[in-house]
Design a protein around this nucleic acid. Structure first.
Lengths: 384, 384
DNA sequence: GACGGGTTCCGAAACGTTTCGGTTCCAATC
DNA sequence: GATTGGAACCGAAACGTTTCGGAACCCGTC
């Protein structure tokens, strides 16, 4: 479908075609269309720097310099200009400014898991809150890129960023095998990754100490007398899964317990999948008295699986999770878990990105601490 | 703090001042600073329409028209231009385009409750998901305005929108006495309100049928044989509270039950506040056998209050909530509640806004339906 | 009274697009 | 052979900023 001339809007082709049947000359065509689509901003003319210049009797240069706080303008002139600006209800056109300054003061947000399913663990939302707060404090605005829809899928990471001219990007929720990730590393757009450890001149990351966290959880279980401890992990494409597995292994090792590969299964970070996998695991290895899950959601699934087999938690089986999502303190039994501060992850991501942008980042990575939260889902091993 | 000339960046004042001590002439000053701050986009020159024109041997006009699908360009030329564009890895500069087109294809998001507290009910997040999906499908990007920080507080609604030149705005989570709200109505920026019923040429709203929903909940309680039914409402500044109260009143009326004002208290949509208020209400009126809460969170608080008084839910007290948040199906007892589709609210908001933007909105309001979800927290009235 | 230096201002170019108002060329028509 | 009309293209202005390179003026100094 081609646009005919004088057509400013795809969607209005129909109107125009109808219209064309009634008009002859190019002039009337154009004119009428102008009437049909009045400029939105034009309607109630928004004051520009030019208007201020005219009203204040100075040049645009001076207005710009005055408003931006430069020193080579007389204070009296500056006051006058400011007064006129206020009177005209002026606010700068950031588009124009960005165009010449080559900085937009916006940071892009590429969230892969911005779906309704993310509602249970609130990971995405809480990270977003942190980013938003930090960006707000520092004068940056956030622009959201959706990557889930078909339409956006066609555009590459670079296109997204180049078109909108974001100063930098924060990526969250993308898997290690996501095509976007390659692009990120190859492009030189400043960016911060959440939970993916890549460092370079223009890319940094922030994550929690997943290894240490997992280790704490398993040590807790060991401390309760458990010797046969299973693990429900996430999936291979997640860096955090590797780390949590490593923490699990480490804790066992330090306690001189055997690490058995068959005691570890993947639950895809999903409650239902974990339920299936946990049931199978418990059937295959009935001696297991405790399970460490790489997420709270999977812990909930595991508890359901246990219940399905007539095993009470925590009496017959201890279950520890990871994340400390809201549900963890409301479910029954309440969940023993490793808390990670998702808000802080977001906040630190924004800090780091802005530091990189402004050329004063020391380290390009930030690793946050975890907390063991003891609740009802873990208990002493009575068989010990 | 004033900027000296040749200073492109506030934050670098220090560097420059230090630097100035070492240089004399204006020329060397400028030159050196240029070296110090290379243009970010300039580094690896991003292809512009001009470059394409040069490489393809045509004018910029033709390139623009070719890429935008206008009809008065030879198909052979168009193909060549497209090829060159791809080769140069061209992507249009939306800043420049927006500047002349006076349309940015972005919609602003003004969320008042973008805080970590919003994590329990996922209202904000789920609405956001809906908006994001719809906007993505229709080629709009989202830009987030934070209103909670001090810095942003100074800027008026109009300034925010004018500066970023968003095409339209969606407002969510603002109270009826929020100063922003006045501005919205007075400005002529197209906008859609969530849960605030204001209509005009440029503003519409979407909400759920709160009255009907509340009525359903209370009718359910009445159907279970309850005659003394209390209500924990939100607060006066919320439109939804008025509606839900009205629904409560209506249900009582149609069942020929007395509406007693002392049976309705405000819980500020907060779990803990509701707990306090519910305890007081139950003490003052021990004959109450059922309570309708204007939110699930408050229902949870109410259940805690009941437990604190030795009343089992649902045996001694039935509790119905509103929202159907995630917790509602995980708490114990699970909550009987009125489900509202928050995702849909977001999605419809975006649809409506875009319709208004493109001048083809029929109605300027959209009211969504609710669903009664029966779970464990309500039961037959044994005293009846 | 020429000169240097500081203060205050300004003209014009630049950023990357879109689009108005043409022009040029060629084939078809009278 | 002059006229018309369409197809294909282009120059230049416009959008609203910032900033480079001066210019004008005044004051003090040699």
């Amino acid at each position: 479908m081609l646009k005919t001339r004088y057509n400013a809007d795809w969607n209005l082709l129909l109107h125009i075609e109808k219209f064309n049947q009634r008009v002859e000359s190019a002039f009337s065509k154009r004119y009428s269309i102008d009437i049909m689509f009045p400029k939105r901003f034009g309607g109630m003319h928004v004051a520009t720097i030019k208007d201020i210049a005219k009203h204040a009797g100075v040049s645009v240069t001076t207005v710009s310099r005055a408003l931006n706080g430069y020193s080579d303008v007389n204070e009296k002139t500056r006051d006058k200009i400011k007064a006129v600006a206020k009177e005209l209800n002026y606010s700068p056109n950031l588009l124009a400014r960005s165009l010449v300054m080559k900085k937009t003061k916006t940071i892009g947000l590429l969230v892969s898991g911005m779906q309704i399913e993310g509602s249970k663990d609130n990971f995405t939302y809480e990270v977003l809150c942190g980013i938003n707060d930090c960006a707000g404090e520092r004068g940056y605005d956030l622009i959201l890129f959706s990557t889930n829809t078909e339409l956006q899928q066609e555009k590459t990471y670079n296109q997204l960023c180049q078109e909108r001219k974001v100063d930098g990007v924060i990526l969250q929720g993308i898997k290690t095998d996501d095509p976007y990730l390659r692009e990120v590393v190859e492009s030189d757009i400043p960016c911060v990754l959440v939970d993916i450890p890549i460092e370079s001149d223009s890319v940094g990351y922030v994550t929690t100490d997943n290894k240490e966290g997992a280790k704490k959880a398993v040590e807790h279980l060991i401390g309760l007398g458990h010797r046969q401890i299973g693990m429900i992990n996430g999936h291979k494409q997640a860096f955090v899964s590797q780390e949590r597995l490593e923490g699990y292994r480490l804790a066992l090792e330090e306690a001189k317990l055997d690490f058995k590969e068959e005691n570890v299964v993947d639950g895809a970070f999903s409650e239902s999948e974990a339920q299936v996998q946990a049931a199978e695991l418990l059937k295959k290895n009935p001696k297991i008295t405790a399970i460490f899950c790489a997420s709270d959601l999977m812990a909930l699934g595991t508890i359901k699986a246990a219940a399905g087999m007539g095993k009470q938690v925590p009496q017959a089986l201890s279950v520890a999770g990871f994340d400390d999502i809201i549900l963890a303190s409301y479910s029954s039994p309440t969940l023993t878990t490793i808390a990670q501060d998702r808000y802080q992850i977001g906040y630190e991501s924004a800090i780091l990105l802005i530091q990189i942008l402004e050329g004063k980042a020391g380290s390009r990575k930030k690793v946050l601490n975890t907390n063991l939260i003891k609740r009802e889902s873990t208990a002493k091993n009575h068989e010990a």
